Computed example of a mutant assay.
Amino acid sequence: MAREHDGSYQPNAKARKQQEKDQRRMEFRRAIESYCDRRELLRSLADYPELQDITVWQVSAATSPKNAQQAR
Rank of each mutant, 00 (worst) to 15 (best):
I54F: 05
Q52G: 11
H5C: 00
S44H: 12
I54N: 00
A13C: 02
G7I: 00
Q18Y: 10
R24M: 04
M1Q: 10
Q52Y: 10
R16V: 03
E20D: 09
A71N: 08
R38V: 05
A62D: 11
S60D: 13
L42P: 00
G7M: 00
A68W: 06
M26Y: 08
Q23E: 14
F28Y: 08
R3K: 08
D22N: 14
A62R: 13
C36S: 13
N12V: 02
R72W: 02
T55W: 03
S64T: 09
D47A: 15
Y35N: 15
E40D: 15
K21I: 05
A68F: 01
W57S: 07
R38Y: 02
Q58M: 04
E50Y: 07
S60Q: 13
L41Y: 07
E27H: 03
R72C: 04
E20W: 00
K21G: 11
A31D: 11
F28Q: 10
R29S: 10
P49Q: 09
K21Y: 11
L42S: 05
C36D: 13
I32P: 06
Q69W: 06
R29I: 07
A68L: 06
D6P: 00
G7L: 00
A71D: 07
R72V: 06
E33S: 10
L45R: 00
Q69P: 02
L45V: 01
H5W: 05
A61N: 15
Y35A: 15
Q58D: 06
E20Y: 04
